[in-house]
Design a binder for these strands. Structure first.
Length: 525
RNA sequence: GGCCCGUUCGUCUAGUGGCCUAGGAUGCCUCCCUUUCAAGGAGGAGAUCACGGGUUCGAAUCCCGUACGGGCUACCA
């Protein structure tokens, strides 16, 4: 790929929330634009007004924001305001730029005049024609062909009808569409940046519709016009568009326009190797959560099991692309610096959650403790462990707790489960653990003595707690694990967790003493 | 059915004719570290490079075919 500034775009239709597959295409486009110092645009392909899903637009914009794929040009407050909120839903204005860019509007539904203009030029030049079959008639023709076991191609009935005559019928109110005159024979050559040239036989191609009966253009026309008008240099899109390439190349040629670089990105599949769906991990990546404390947006929060956006970004970039070296952990800036669209894979990849979580663990551990706490806190709040209106002391306590778990978590979503016992009055004792460490002879006495010794241990820090505990343990003839394990279970209810003495230090004297008392009860029961 | 695209460890991938007895990561297993769990460190198992033919002194890499998977074949994108 040339290193000239590339203008790329992500052009979803607002028919649902984007999933990681869509966003990976957006991410590659973004990376290419940033790598070359070009621009990344967002364009909304809303030419099929019947399939609009309210809220999808908000999800698209929020997802891009969450992942850190900021667009240089795209929907702004004014253009979103013009859109019918009943059909599109509303968009949080905070997510929208004031000024969308010089090539707008970035909603196809707001560019209808331009499409008509282009279609008219094609009509005038004799490169397109009006056709008067209705949808029903076409369906009947298709069904008939299928009955005969023949592939269906439109019969081009109106291709040679004189334009003046056709215009007259149109003026008389005849329902109509406009079709492009495709070559009827010979090879059609298309190019894909990853696959090179593909040669198609013109006889397999249809005179496809470039203007629907409702006056809206279909994708084939709208996308090509917009990509041209918006000076898009590299069209990265899903592999499903590969077989429409002949349409696009012929249209562009009929218009005499420069053909951008087309690059068809392979699919991202679910863990089961099937197309992504809600069942196999294609959760929408909708982001931006409110900080329960300040009420501010925490930008970049990604609702994907508590995966950090920077980790998702990193992981997604490596599904279908690699820098060619044994490098895996690369933050955004490095990804931008190293990205090379030519190295995008041609074969589909599976979105592997295990690997995502591993990457996430690396990012989690690399976070400054305060930052980690800030990002994890909303999860504790959501689980009801920290009140929404927590005071400073409670927030500080939660932060201290989280600091102990930082290197153990793979996702933020695990935080409530991992830290729950810190926030309850008493932990839930895991029966198996209690049986193993609290029930045996001598445990009750040991824990009770330890409680007594801890009453005025001072200062209350990990070091002091450790020496007191070891001393009491030694007095009871215990060593190593026999000293720590009963205490661990007594204090947390379970056998696994953070370093024992740090944990006790954070819990505080009152909680520790109460839990030791409870453990003694259990031991004696 | 027709046309098109794809196929390297379970998974993500490196590999563009000899450096490949195929490298890294993840997951799994073992050991070390250690108060537990993680993390970290050291190892291990795991890919006859979909299959079959060619081309070549030499192929995962080039060519052909087959199989399998996928896409398109809409007045959806």
């Amino acid at each position: 790929m040339s290193e000239k500034p590339a203008r790329t775009r992500y052009a979803p239709s607002p028919t649902g929330s984007p999933h990681v597959g869509n966003l990976r295409t957006a991410l590659f486009s973004y990376l290419l634009a940033r790598h070359t110092g070009g621009q990344f645009l967002l364009r909304v392909e809303d030419t099929d007004q019947t399939r609009l899903v309210p809220g999808a637009l908000q999800d698209i914009i929020a997802s891009l924001r969450a992942l850190g794929l900021d667009y240089d040009e795209g929907p702004d407050r004014a253009s979103v305001a013009r859109v019918d909120a009943a059909k599109y839903g509303t968009v949080d204005p905070a997510l929208l730029p004031e000024e969308g860019g010089a090539y707008g509007p970035y909603f196809q539904s707001q560019r209808l005049d331009r499409y008509r203009e282009v279609v008219d030029t094609l009509l005038d030049a004799g490169k397109a024609y009006y056709a008067f079959e209705t949808k029903e008639e076409l369906e009947a023709m298709r069904a008939a062909a299928q009955m005969r076991g023949e592939p269906f191609l439109y019969n081009r009935r109106y291709r040679d009808l004189p334009l003046a005559e056709a215009r007259k019928r149109v003026e008389d109110g005849a329902p109509h569409v406009v079709r492009l005159k495709m070559p009827t024979e010979g090879p059609i050559r298309t190019y894909d940046a990853l696959r090179g040239e593909t040669v198609w036989d013109a006889t397999t191609q249809d005179d496809f519709i470039i203007l629907k009966a409702d006056g809206f253009p279909p994708y084939h026309l709208a996308a090509m016009v917009d990509d041209h008008d918006m000076e898009i240099t590299h069209v990265l899109r899903g592999e499903e568009w590969l077989s429409s390439s002949p349409k696009h190349f012929c249209l562009l040629q009929a218009l005499g326009w420069e053909i951008p670089v087309f690059l068809h990105v392979p699919y991202v599949l679910g863990a089961d190797g099937k197309k992504l769906s809600k069942r196999n991990g294609a959760k929408p990546v909708v982001g931006v959560i409110k900080d329960p404390k300040t009420g501010e947006d925490i930008p970049g929060y990604v609702d994907h099991d508590g995966v950090l956006p920077e980790a998702l970004f990193n992981h997604l970039a490596l599904v279908g692309w690699s820098p060619g070296e044994d490098l895996e952990i690369m933050p955004k800036e490095e990804l931008i610096a190293r990205f090379d669209a030519n190295r995008i894979s041609r074969s589909p990849g599976i979105f592997d959650l295990d690997k995502l979580y591993a990457t996430n663990g690396v990012y989690l551990r690399a976070l400054a403790p305060e930052d980690f706490a800030r990002r994890a806190l909303p999860y504790l709040a959501k689980a009801g462990l920290v009140p929404e209106d927590a005071d400073d002391a409670a927030v500080q306590y939660a932060a201290d707790v989280l600091a102990l778990e930082q290197e153990r978590l793979k996702t933020l979503a695990e935080a409530p489960q991992a830290t729950e016992f810190f926030f309850r009055d008493l932990p839930e004792y895991v029966e198996k653990s209690a049986n193993k460490w609290l029930k045996p002879q001598g445990a009750a006495e040991y824990l009770s003595d330890l409680g007594a010794a801890l009453v005025d241990a001072s200062p209350w820090d990990a070091q002091t707690i450790e020496s007191v505990t070891r001393e009491v343990g030694a007095r009871h003839g215990r060593e190593r694990g026999d000293i720590t394990h009963p205490v661990r279970v007594a204090v947390s209810g379970r056998e696994a967790g953070p370093s024992l003495f740090d944990m006790m230090a954070v819990l505080g004297r009152e909680r520790v003493l109460a839990r030791l008392r409870r453990a003694v009860e259990i031991a004696r029961a």
